[in-house]
Simulated assay, not measured.
Amino acid sequence: MFNGQDSGYISPEYAVHGRFSIKSDVFSFGVLVLEIICGKKNKEFSHGDHNDNLLGHAWRLFKEGGSIELISGSLQTSHVIFEVLRSIHVALLCVQHHAEDRPTMLTVVLMLVSEGPLPDPKQPAFFNEEGFRELEILASVDEATLTMLYAR
């Protein structure tokens, strides 16, 4: 059965249906970028104020205009904050629940090297523990589905 805690880099379409999409790598890239910026792994992340994973925490901070709080101390002093905040925004676009809402890797690169406006991300996949439980239910239903064949 699927365990949401192991979902570190796995796209929702693979976690639930066992299918990779052309944008599964985009999802993994987004998680990796958030981990680098935060300095913590997604599946090991915890916060005292809520039960969100790293993706949910980044989303919460983004919506509140506090993405700068996600940045690890070492990055705050050694990098241009604008570029790191833009990377968070792009990473959130990469971790969208539905593959069709994620950019392509080419678009990701273009967004990272440009300074133009970015689209607003939607709530990411695997937002919190409730999302994990939802995926566990879907995965268990998917595993338990039987197809009965009857000869004519």
Rank of each mutant, 00 (worst) to 15 (best):
I36Q: 02
H50A: 09
P121H: 12
G4D: 14
E143L: 13
S74Q: 13
L106A: 02
R60G: 06
V31G: 01
E13M: 12
A144F: 06
L149I: 06
E130D: 15
L106Y: 03
G4H: 10
S114Y: 12
S7Q: 08
T104M: 12
M1F: 05
R60W: 09
L70A: 08
R102A: 06
S67E: 14
G30F: 12
F27R: 00
G39S: 09
D142S: 11
S74M: 12
A144E: 15
P12E: 14
Q76F: 00
F126G: 04
F29A: 04
G116W: 11
E44W: 11
K23E: 12
G8L: 11
I88N: 11
L85N: 11
Q123Y: 02
G39F: 15
G65Y: 03
A125C: 06
N42F: 12
I10S: 08
L75D: 11
V90W: 04
D49S: 06
G131T: 02
E130N: 04
G73E: 15
E115P: 04
D52N: 15
V141I: 12
L32Q: 01
R86Q: 05
A125Y: 03
K63F: 00
G18Q: 14
G131E: 15
S78C: 06
F45N: 11
R86P: 00
G131S: 07
C38M: 00
A139K: 04
V16G: 01
K122H: 07
I68T: 14
F132W: 07
L55T: 01
D52K: 09
L146Y: 04
P124G: 10
I22D: 12
L92K: 05
E100Y: 14
G8Y: 08
M1Q: 14
V80G: 01
L34C: 06
E129C: 02
F126Q: 03
G73M: 05
E130S: 07
I37V: 09
K43I: 12
L118T: 10
Q76A: 07
E100S: 13
A125P: 01
G131F: 01
T107A: 03
D49Q: 05
I71H: 10
L118M: 04
S24P: 06
A139Y: 09
E44S: 14
L118I: 05
G73C: 00
H57W: 02
H17A: 09
R19V: 00
T147N: 03
T145G: 07
S140N: 15
E83G: 04
E69I: 07
I81L: 13
N53D: 15
Y14P: 00
M105Y: 05
N3E: 13
S46N: 14
M111G: 04
L138V: 07
L70E: 11
G73P: 02
I71N: 12
P103I: 10
K23M: 13
L135N: 13
M148S: 10
Y14I: 05
S87C: 10
K122I: 03
S28L: 08
A15S: 10
E35P: 08
K40D: 11
G73H: 04
S46G: 03
S114K: 11
E13P: 05
A15F: 07
H89M: 01
K122D: 07
I68C: 10
Q76N: 12
N128C: 15
L55W: 06
S46L: 10
